[in-house]
Amino acid sequence: MRKSLIALAVMGASTVAFAASNVTLYGVIEEGVVVQKAKHQDTTVSLKSGFDQGSRWGLRGVEELGNGYSVGFVLEEGFDADTGANTASNSAGRVFGRESQLFVQGGFGKLGFGRFGTLASGAGSYQVLTGWALGTGFGLSAWTSFGGSFSRADNAVAYRTPSFGGLTITAMYSNGYTADDAKWSKNNHYYGIGAKYEANAIKSSLIFEAMDNKGTEVAAKTAGSLFNISQWAVVKGYDPANLTDPQKDEYKKWAETSLDDATAAKKRALMINYGLEYNMGAWTPMFAYQWFNQDGGKKTHMFGLSAKVGVAGGDILVGGRYLFGHDEALTGDDKVRAWNLGAAYIYPLSKRTAVKAYAGYADSSKGWKDKEEVAYNGYQLYLGLRHSF
């Protein structure tokens, strides 16, 4: 009820606000049908909001201060078009969950405060990710589907330099990724710095990000604290009195793992993303790489080759990725391998409306071979419509 009243108040005051300053109402509505099947799961057919571009509405405003300086804001809310609720993952329980920032800009660059997407999130005013034609949308082909991502940060400060011959530097810091009301050393901090170059036919970016997760650090309970080697052997079907050395080593590794996979998300995480695009006119080939390292979690390398090709008045987006490394949150074999292929076609019906079609397939092996999630093992088909305003 409270959120509804706030939204009504904002919209009710829009006429006055539009007259008083440069304010823009904007949004995206995307909805379509998804057919998908994950390994060992049933095939499902569902109406899906924001499969590629998340459905959202927002307000942007700028006031000129003179001498090249201005102050502005962005307030952006996500919602599920198929239900009308704000249960979209980035906005659940929030009024402006996609972005909420106040900024000042001028000859020195741009300085913003609030909540916004992190540098490699693919979303928001300060993201600089390049090199992957399918971006962070399109389901299992999203760059973040089985790679690393820090999504959006609360309590954040971001600074972007002016362009120097096509090169800009963006830095971001969050004093508390979800809250900053504790002692500084116990808040969960995000740090990011990214360089983006965009000139002539070349677009490229290099991004380093870190999350210390100090505010969520807990003493992890290991599997070995509940099951000794004899009990474990019985469950595995081994003879407790005649365990081989490989079996003992298997227990030792298993005993040191956390009982809760989520514990891995409470450890320090580091990530590097690099992207390169070269516009050749009719088509744009792209290359992307990610290194992700999390204590007690994933330690992976991911490579992607993709392209954007103009065909019959629309754009074909096609890409393939391969990931390898370790996932220390797993019991048993912590080596992981994963790959996927995806292709999409976007056809504009007008300047603001487009039809989208997509097909993707993912397969994983080693420790992820039986992971029952479509992003790791499964396929997706999508047909939808996007309208922007």
Results as ranks from 00 to 15, higher is better:
Thr331Pro: 11
Ser258Cys: 02
Asn279Phe: 02
Asp327Lys: 10
Ala329Glu: 07
Thr284Ile: 04
His301Glu: 14
Glu256Trp: 06
Asn279Ile: 00
Pro285Arg: 10
Gly320Ala: 07
Lys298Cys: 00
Ala255Arg: 07
Phe287Lys: 05
Ala307Met: 07
Met302Arg: 15
Leu270Asn: 12
Asn293Leu: 03
Tyr322Phe: 15
Asp334Thr: 11
Arg268Trp: 02
Lys266Ile: 00
Asp249Asn: 12
Tyr274Gly: 15
Gly310Gln: 08
Gly325Trp: 14
Arg268Cys: 00
Gly310Trp: 00
Gly319Trp: 07
Trp283Arg: 01
Gly319Ser: 04
Ala282Gln: 08
Asn279Met: 01
Ala312Pro: 03
Thr331Ile: 15
Ile316Lys: 07
Leu259Val: 15
Lys266Cys: 00
Ile272Met: 13
Phe292His: 09
Met280Asp: 03
Asp333Thr: 12
Glu250Ala: 15
Arg321Asn: 08
Leu276Thr: 03
Ala262Ser: 11
Asp334Leu: 01
Gly275Lys: 10
Gln294Phe: 04
Ser306Ala: 09
Leu330Thr: 12
Phe287Ser: 07
Val311Gly: 02
Ala264Leu: 00
Gly297Cys: 12
Lys335Leu: 10
Thr284Ser: 05
Met286Gly: 08
Gly297Ile: 13
Leu276Ala: 05
Lys266Trp: 03
Gln290Ile: 02
Val311Trp: 13
Gly332Gln: 09
Gly296Ala: 01
Leu330Val: 12
Gly313Pro: 07
Arg321His: 07
Arg268Ile: 01
Lys248Pro: 04
Tyr289Phe: 15
Asp249Tyr: 08
Ala264Pro: 04
Asp334Ser: 06
Thr300Ser: 08
Ala269Pro: 08
Gly297His: 12
Thr331Tyr: 15
Asp315Gln: 13
Ala329Ile: 00
Trp254Asp: 14
Lys298Gln: 03
Phe287Leu: 13
Lys308His: 01
Trp283Ile: 00
Lys298Arg: 07
Lys266Glu: 02
Leu276Tyr: 14
Asp315Pro: 04
Asn293Gly: 11
Gln290Met: 06
Gly320Cys: 01
Tyr322Lys: 15
Tyr289Gly: 10
Gly314Leu: 02
Lys266Gly: 02
Met286Ala: 13
Pro285Phe: 09
Ala312Arg: 01
Tyr322Val: 15
Lys252His: 11
Met286Thr: 07
Gly332Trp: 10
His301Lys: 14
Asp315Lys: 13
Ala269Asp: 10
Leu330Asp: 12
Gly325Asn: 12
Gly319Tyr: 07
Lys248Asp: 06
Thr300Val: 13
Phe324Asp: 14
Glu256Lys: 13
Lys299Ser: 03
Val311Asp: 02
Lys335Ile: 05
Gly310Glu: 09
Asn279Glu: 03
Lys253Thr: 06
Leu305Pro: 01
Thr263Lys: 08
Ala265Gln: 12
Phe292Met: 01
Lys266Thr: 06
Val311Lys: 06
Lys266Tyr: 12
Ala312Met: 04
Phe292Ala: 02
Thr300Glu: 04
Glu277Tyr: 05
Ser258Gly: 11
